[in-house]
Each structure stands twice: as C-alpha cells, then as structure tokens.
C-alpha cells in the first residue's frame, strides 16, 4: 500500500478484512510480526515518536472520557502534544462544535463524537491524517461537510488516508484507493484507473420497437459485437465506438432510442473484487470474501504487499 503525499487515499475492505488492524499497526498500537512500514519517510514503529507529531488519526469508533467537555478533551490532548491552546478553538470551529464545546462528551450523539474525533486528529495540524470511518453517525449535511473538509485539507497539502464503507463518498473524495480482502490487497491505484480496469465497456441498447431486438442482435453479432439479450433491451460488449452501432443498425432500418455506456461505480467494483455481492437467499459470513493467494507474508525486510 502506497499513499502519495497530498492525496486523499481510500482504504477499503469488507468487515474483518484487516483495515483497522493495518491502521493500528501503522500507528504503533499493534506490534507487527513482519514487513516494513514507513510514514513521511520514517520507518515505523521505530521512528514513530519522531513522526507522531505530524500524524493525526482516529481509529475505529471515537472514544473519549465521557465526563469531560469537548474543550477539556481537546485541551488535554493539546497539552500532551505541546499544541498551542488557541488551536483548540480553531478545530472546534472547523468541525462545527464550537457552540457545544462546553458540554460533556457523554451528552453528544455519535455524529458529534465523530466530529470531536476529527477535531482531535486535526488538532496538531498534521501532515498526514488517518481517519477510520470518519462519516460514521454523521447526518447527510455532516457527510457533505466532511467531504468538503477532506478536499480542502488535501488542497492545503495534507495527505489523507480514509477508511470507509460509504463507497459513494470514497469515489467522490479520493484520488486513489487500496482495496483489501482477508488481509491481502486486491486492487490499488487512482480511482479512475481502478474503475477503468474493472469496467466491462458495456453499452445498453434500446430500440423504438421491442420486436426489432432479435433482428438487431443478429446484425450486431455478425459485426463481431458480443450481445446479451434482455426482454426490453440488449447489452453490448466489445463496442469500440457507439457510433458504429447506430450506423450498423440504421443500415438495417432499425432506429435506436437509447444507447448508453454502462458506467461502473466503486461499489460494484468493490463487491466484485471482494466477492461480497449479496446473493438472494444466502447469508454471507464475515470471512466470506475473496482470498488472494500471494507469497507467504514476509517476516522481516521487504515492503510487504
């Protein structure tokens, strides 16, 4: 897994695939049993103390001492990290909690705790921000605000690693993604590339008269297009240019009412790559996802996956 500086990187995987474990290991909370990790050019966990001041993180659900106010919580963290006190007010304003900063955390909703967690991660104005499920519990407005915040932070030069199950958000926010399944990487790279690699290039075709569909299917098959017939439309694969299809059918006196390239989204790619697409009548178990058989995990040296 490699994250370029200044990018927003999505880290995806089904439940139990190892996202949080990876992040915890990276942050020194779990002892690695092999491999190598590096943050901002420093190998961790050996040099974690040197880079910790430049890394803001929330791991899994936000957890805070319930009887302290949000301001106290952040103020204590700022004290421990030698962050100027005025930064507390700045981040409270940034996450929209300045009006409720003097209330105890135990009175907060999950979304407010999530905002506080993001505030705590932003407190030290980090160069690298690691957020595990930051949109958990946020209302729709909050999700949109979070999206804008992530983009603004990235534009200001901050590198953001984002783990989330809201794939629509990831697709909108992230420059690149890594998808893992059962602890192994199954896809990585810029979002567009990952989508393109898994795009079928399919085109949906509808005609004015449904009765003409078999005729069209025959003509297109003869021209080398792979056709899948459906009751009210045809799915075409292997089409270089949609104009070829319209010309071919016009020659046969068949008139197109719809010719749409079928766009693939990150959710369908994710479900496909991890083999976690729900099947009616089946109850998928947590560990039922695609298993990548790679070389044995390195126990020392090397850059892991």
């Amino acid at each position: 897994m490699r994250v370029e500086a200044g990018q927003v990187h999505g880290f995806l995987g089904p439940n139990g695939s190892g996202k949080t474990t990876t992040l915890r290991t990276l942050l020194g909370l779990i002892r690695p049993d092999g491999g190598r990790m590096s943050i901002l050019g420093h190998e961790v966990p050996a040099a974690l103390a040197e880079v910790a001041g430049q890394v803001g993180a929330i791991v899994e659900s936000p957890q805070f001492f319930p009887h302290f106010t949000a301001r106290d919580t952040l103020s204590l963290l700022a004290g421990a990290g030698e962050v100027p006190a005025q930064r507390v007010d700045e981040v409270l304003e940034l996450v929209g909690l300045s009006g409720r900063a003097n209330e105890r955390v135990k009175t907060y909703s999950l979304g407010m705790k999530q905002r506080l967690a993001v505030a705590s991660a932003l407190l030290k104005n980090p160069r690298l921000l690691i957020l595990d499920e930051p949109a958990n519990g946020l209302d729709p407005g909050g999700i949109r605000e979070m999206r804008t915040l992530m983009r603004n932070l990235a534009e200001s030069g901050m590198t953001v690693v984002l783990s989330s199950h809201i794939l629509g958000e990831i697709q909108l926010i992230c420059d690149s993604v890594t998808i893992i399944s059962l602890g192994r990487r199954v896809a990585f790279g810029p979002v567009e590339e990952v989508l393109a690699q898994h795009s079928s290039g399919a085109v949906r075709l509808r005609l004015d008269a449904v009765t003409d569909l078999p005729l069209a299917a025959t003509a297109l098959t003869r021209a080398g297009v792979r056709v899948t017939a459906n009751p009210d439309h045809l799915m075409l694969a292997g089409v270089d240019k949609p104009a070829t299809v319209t010309r071919l059918l016009a020659e046969q006196g068949l008139y197109v009412s719809e010719l749409t390239p079928v766009a693939v989204d990150l959710e369908s790619v994710f479900l496909d790559l991890t083999a976690t697409t729900p099947v009616p009548g089946q109850h998928r178990q947590v560990d039922q996802s695609v298993r990548v058989d790679g070389p044995p995990a390195p126990t020392g040296g090397g850059w892991g996956a």
Partner: peptide, 13 residues
Amino acid sequence: TGGMMNLLLWRPK
C-alpha cells in the same frame, strides 16, 4: 474509555 489509545496516538512512547 479509549483515552489511553488517544494519548498513545499523540505520545507513542
């Protein structure tokens, strides 16, 4: 309450 984990993210020693 998870406070220790938060603190260790700030002070990993």
